[in-house]
Amino acid sequence: MTTVAIVDFGMGNIVSVAAAVEKLGCRSVVTSTPSEIAAADRIILPGVGAFGDAMRNLHERGLVPALRHLVEKEHKPILGICLGAQLICNESEEFGRHEGFGWIDAMVTRLDSKPGCRIPHVGWNGFSRRRDSCLLRGIPEDALFYYVHSFGIQCQSEQSLIADCEYGTRFAAIIESGNVFGTQFHPEKSQRYGLAVLNNFLNEDLVC
């Protein structure tokens, strides 16, 4: 049975992520303890809220060096969800400039409100595939996922852009680099296709 550490840094909807992980037959450990994260097979970095507050909370809990070690040295698979996906990028311009983990060469910028595109981008939307990914195994082309965000990920290098979504501007929907994965949408809130993406991360071989 896969053990999944859901990183608890005081932000966002951890209950739903844990419920989804358990529905998929995995053991979930909601934790901010580095040793518990180290003992897990997979790491999920959830998150709802502001980028700066999130990084500050991670620093305060001593989780930044711990996660860096596990992800960069031990190559443990990690999935960032929504704000969690933004945190694994280089930096964000939300309420000032804030540095992220930098595992994905990307910037996080504000989505512009345009006619027909009210911000936040909230609701069910799809994505266009740019590269193949283990996360997309068995996912139909027209599958829809739940997004809710005001900032978007802009990849600097196309290498890590798996899929993007169009809403006024284009932004990354799925990013990936080695053992690091991120989804702007909420797989845990996207019913069967969301759970299928999550299942690909949790229970499948991550080397395609």
Binding site: M11, G12, V48, G49, A50, D53, L83, P120, V122, V148, H149, S150
Partner: peptide
């Protein structure tokens, strides 16, 4: 909104 973001 400051803690959880406007989308919340």
């Amino acid at each position: 909104a400051r803690v959880y973001g406007s989308q919340c």
